[in-house]
Nucleic acid binder design. Structure first.
Lengths: 204, 204
DNA sequence: ATAAAAATATTACGAGCATATTTTTATTGC
DNA sequence: GCAATAAAAATATGCTCGTAATATTTTTAT
């Protein structure tokens, strides 16, 4: 009988190698040979696990989103709501080397997401989950008074996600004014403002 | 003397053709032949005006940022400040076909901006101008009471630009919850909130 | 021990592309 | 009208990369 290998482990190893190469060289300059070398494997082996380059890329993106979801799930669900919200949102920012790498790769894949229907679906699904997740959290927080009822949960979720992603992109591109401290402060201010009751409203 | 051609006009024609092709097929699938065909020219002619593909791409990006700047300059400078700010910010959103095309191309170029130093410089310079422009506007508005003095002008500018770009990207990627109406509303809410004095502050 | 089958490695091919080179065409001064 | 020369088009070249085809190694059941 034939020999056996841990397929899932191999696929993951290759996917992680892909992400490292893309983070280093950019998606446009990433070749199958690069990925194979980075994974310490041959091109043939990469081909064995991924029928085509497109397959490999799709799996890589899935891996990426999975990692993001894991990180979000790992956040402590401890009140007060304001701090919890801040922890969740900060999780999405490139504030350490690992997230920086992953989000750089995410940025590399964004344009492909416009063209490729599979990637588009993946992106939309993930974004939807994220926005709905925040919106649900806002709705629940509204019942305990931690979120002003005059605000629309979905709108606020859209705003928060957009702000975070905008900050992320500019930070990654190295724009002036978008240093790590600054983007944290901006996020903080935004959250405090959206949780504060509107001026003309009584706090009770 | 030999025959002569309007070089600037030609360069612009080619650049515009490039942007149309990139918007349609994506940067990764855009070839010199594509651009030449779109411009109604031969590859040789494109080569005459742009020594290499990289040159062409850089010029295209410059063209892009120039168009954005022109649009901003074309905005009516009429008070009240809140409406002016809204008009300026909306100018950056992909709310019609032309801006949609241009911003799609901008998105296509974002990853290249990470790698290519020239493009990075261009991006940083433009972003800096934009953020400083908004910050200056906030500072001036602060003197007339239209902008709460307890807010930091630069921070607010960073937040506004990030929010706009985040909304733009998600809208272009066709995410649910990021329709045209929604992103306008979200922008509106953000502006109203940042211009409103903080709860614990007297309006005077 | 060995045969069979699976996993992995190597090599080869061909498409597509940017760019260099050559050829043709058009225009202007004399 | 005829060189002279710039502009544009056509063609040629060489390289990179994805993929397919082939070869080699490794494992295990008999």
């Amino acid at each position: 009988m034939p020999r056996t290998a841990d397929h899932d482990e191999r696929r993951d190893r290759i996917a992680r190698a892909l992400l490292r190469v893309v983070a280093r060289k950019g998606l446009a300059d990433t070749t199958m040979v690069d990925v194979a070398e980075e994974a310490g494997a041959s091109v043939g082996m990469v081909q064995r696990y991924f029928r085509s380059k497109k397959d490999l890329l799709r799996f890589g993106v899935e891996h990426l989103y999975r990692r993001g979801a894991e990180r979000l799930e790992g956040v402590e669900r401890r009140p007060p709501f304001r701090d919890l919200l801040l922890r969740l949102a900060e999780t999405l920012l490139p504030l350490d080397e690992e997230r920086r790498t992953e989000l750089t790769v995410w940025l590399e894949f964004l344009p492909a997401t416009v063209t490729d229907p599979d990637l588009a679906g993946l992106h939309r699904g993930t974004t939807r989950l994220l926005v709905d997740g925040f919106a649900d959290a806002f709705t629940i927080a509204g019942q305990t008074g931690a979120f002003p009822t005059e605000n629309d949960p979905t709108e606020e979720a859209v705003a928060l996600v957009s702000l975070v992603d905008g900050l992320t992109i500019h930070h990654l591109l190295g724009s002036d004014h978008f240093g790590a401290d600054r983007i944290r402060t901006v996020l903080c201010t935004h959250i405090d403002r959206l949780l504060a009751p509107a001026p003309g409203t009584t706090g009770a």
